[in-house]
Design a protein around this nucleic acid. Structure first.
Length: 554
RNA sequence: CGGGGCGUAGCGCAGCCCGGUUAGCGCACCUGCCUUGGGAGCAGGGGGUCGGUGGUUCAAAUCCACUCGCCCCGACCA
């Protein structure tokens, strides 16, 4: 491809509104343009990158026997009503009516449609298993589109769905997807982790996410470098640091006007780890007490999984039930349901005395109060791995893929049944697996760039090699074209910068758009019989004779 | 949906507080000359209903109200 024939509108500067590095560089390099909030146009260079990612996705999906199909983006509401998601999902779903007044929606994912298809077509166990996938547009009316192409309202997704007879079959489908995903992200040149995750509204059982570490990421992941434990912060557990065990008898202490753990800790000269943080929670079942160690933070999602939706109890509700105001409440002496973090199983602690201006020391779990034990704290950097107790690390990351074991959540309501070998009707066991190629693109840029621009992994770069003839002179351009042809013959995607621009412009643009290799041809070098090969990543320059370039191992 | 910020030429910005010539700068663009190893130089030129609507005023880019759009933080994120 000649530079003059491909539209690459690079920018000198990008506005304040773009903050994420990938967003800035993709705009600056002429890969993307924004149409409206969360809506992006992929320009020739950006679309080339997407195509190369998609090609890898196809190859690896095909390799595990997945079959590509394509479904409509426009869905009849009935399917979503059948699974209940029509009602569960709120503003994120684009809804509309057709001319006949029928409710429709734009597909944000395709479990319903795929399960519907299976329900129509799969009759017998002989037709199972199946894996169907598509690479197709999804629409979600995101509350807040973010960071360029990282979170958009319309995006392409590779989504696949597995259909099996039983759990064992599902486990196999899940496993081959898991492995395929590893190959895909490796081939795309990304640093990534596979982490345990929260299935969320997808429902079903086990799920994992694939996370590309990046400070621009929206998620936090908890990682153990020793045993490989890795989990999304939403589900991560940790073993908090052991603390000094204060052994003392139950005794009330006067703590006038000292309410928060912080205040009482300072007042008594006891570190926060010596306290029980007593939280009064109003759940649908009524007042519930949640207990954390004084230095811990409540993980609301974890608690919600145990007691359902809740809010902080109001001051009046606390006074009415416990007879004292927030700041002096404790875990003992009332019959309320108590959820406690397991770190409190050992030791004795200080907490509120359920009496204004008093705290109480010497509280022991099992002795003075009897809680249900659930991990409800937020994991912190440096705390112990739940599996091997070595220090955990926390990193920000971009979610680039996820895999879910769905079970029968969609197959039963949509009546996707099959007959087993004994003639009995059974629900098909499903899994669903997604990858966002635009996220891969953004993550690749986030993970590899420098002050001059993008450094594409070879596998997904818009071109393999860029040739920079530095002057319009005949010899230079002829040499460039000769090399261009020989590289094309070898099967490379080559970009030849044939523009009538000064060398500086060509250098700047080449570094910005980040093609892995640059072949620089100048009169100066040519006179001495060499051209230069520059590796974009290292900026290392190798001098080669013009005749030997095509033999180089790119 | 809560909080904050921004909207002025194709792009990036200043001007706005404190109303008052013809609304300015850089880049890009057009013409000519010159130049060709890191976004050249000189000369000339074109391009704006200052997001929109309404109001205050002799006078509004500037003050007020409403509204639309975009960005950031949070909530949310199947």
């Amino acid at each position: 491809m000649f530079y003059s024939k491909i539209f690459i509108p690079t920018l000198r500067e990008v506005g304040q509104e773009a903050e994420a590095i990938s967003h800035r560089l993709l705009l600056k390099g002429g890969f993307i343009r924004q149409l409206a909030s969360g809506l992006y146009i992929y320009l020739p260079l950006g679309w080339r990158v997407m195509q190369r990612i998609i090609k890898i996705l196809r190859e690896e999906m095909d390799a595990i026997g997945a079959q590509e199909i394509t479904c409509p983006v426009l869905h009849p509401a009935e399917l979503w009503e059948a699974t209940g998601r029509w009602y569960e999902i709120k503003d994120e779903m684009f809804r509309l009516k057709d001319r006949g007044g029928r409710n429709m929606c734009l597909g944000m994912t395709h479990e319903e449609v795929m399960a519907w298809l299976a329900s129509k077509e799969i009759r017998s166990y002989r037709e199972l298993p199946q894996i169907w996938y598509q690479i197709q547009t999804k629409l979600r009316d995101e509350a807040r589109p973010k960071a360029g192409i990282m979170r958009t309202r319309e995006f392409i997704m590779k989504d696949s769905y597995s259909f099996d007879m039983d759990e064992e079959g599902l486990n196999h489908s899940y496993e081959i997807h898991r492995k395929a995903y590893h190959r895909i992200f490796e081939r795309c040149g990304l640093k990534f982790y596979e982490v345990e995750s929260d299935p969320g509204m997808m429902g079903g059982g086990q799920s994992h996410e694939f996370m590309a570490p990046s400070t621009a990421g929206e998620d936090e992941i908890v990682i153990c470098d020793r045993c490989g434990y890795a989990a999304n912060m939403e589900v991560a557990d940790s073993i908090p640091h052991e603390t000094i065990k204060e052994e003392s008898n139950l005794e009330e202490v006067h703590t006038p006007d000292k309410r928060t753990v912080e205040e009482v800790s300072r007042f008594l000269g006891v570190p926060r780890e010596g306290f029980i943080k007593t939280l009064a929670i109003m759940a649908s079942e009524g007042l519930v007490i949640a207990l954390l160690r004084g230095d811990q933070q409540l993980h609301e999602k974890k608690l919600q999984k145990i007691i359902g939706p809740f809010r902080q109890a109001l001051k009046e509700e606390i006074i009415e039930r416990l007879g004292t105001e927030p700041g002096f409440i404790g875990p003992h002496g009332h019959g309320l349901r108590i959820i406690a973090d397991p770190v409190l199983q050992k030791g004795s602690y200080i907490s509120g005395a359920n009496k204004k201006d008093y705290h109480i020391r010497g509280l022991k779990a099992g002795v003075h109060f009897k809680p249900e034990w659930y991990s409800i704290h937020i994991a912190k950097e440096g705390e112990g791995c739940p599996k091997c107790n070595s220090p955990l690390r926390i990193e920000k990351a971009i979610e680039i893929g996820n895999i879910f074991k769905l079970g029968t959540k969609y197959s039963i309501p949509l009546k996707a049944f099959y007959l087993d070998s004994s003639g009995q009707q059974r629900p098909i066991i499903m899994g669903s697996y997604g990858i966002g190629p635009a996220r891969i693109m953004a993550a690749a840029v986030e993970q590899a760039n420098d002050a001059d621009g993008i450094i594409w992994p070879k596998s997904i770069a818009p071109f393999d090699i860029e040739i920079l003839p530095l002057s319009p002179g005949n010899v230079v351009m002829e040499t460039a074209k000769k090399i261009y042809n020989s590289l094309i013959e070898r099967g490379f995607d080559v970009l030849l910068d044939d523009r009538d621009e000064r060398p500086g412009v060509k250098f700047k643009d080449a570094d910005l758009i980040g093609i892995p290799y640059q072949i620089i041809i100048g009169e100066r070098g040519l006179k001495e019989g060499y051209i230069e090969l520059k590796e974009r990543r290292t900026k290392a320059i190798t001098k080669l004779s013009p005749d030997s370039v095509h033999r180089y191992g790119f």
